[in-house]
């Protein structure tokens, strides 16, 4: 069980200090999640911390490839 950072990540660092398992690696072209270390924050937090702060839609996905922040989810709700 592990989340994955995919292409589109802008290397903004927001997730790195939040991960309770220190599973996030500063890498290029984009940051990565060490699969063995990631627990998807189960039991630690109500929601995976990396996905809760990530400013880019669609770049953090679960093991089925489903985006935790799907398209449109981070857009302003008011005009």
């Amino acid at each position: 069980m592990s989340l994955e950072i995919i292409e589109g990540c802008v290397n903004c660092w927001a997730c790195l200090p939040l991960c309770p398992n220190e599973a996030i690696i500063e890498a290029r072209p984009h940051f990565l999640i060490e699969p063995e270390a990631c627990t998807e924050c189960v039991e630690a937090y109500a929601t995976p911390q990396c996905a809760a702060i990530c400013p880019v839609e669609g770049v953090i996905v679960d093991s089925l490839g489903v985006a935790l922040n799907p398209p449109g989810s981070l857009q302003p709700q008011v005009a």
Binding site: Y45, T47, A52, L74
Partner: peptide, 9 residues
Amino acid sequence: PWIFWNHRR
């Protein structure tokens, strides 16, 4: 549009 607060968005 959002803030990160108390471990959630």
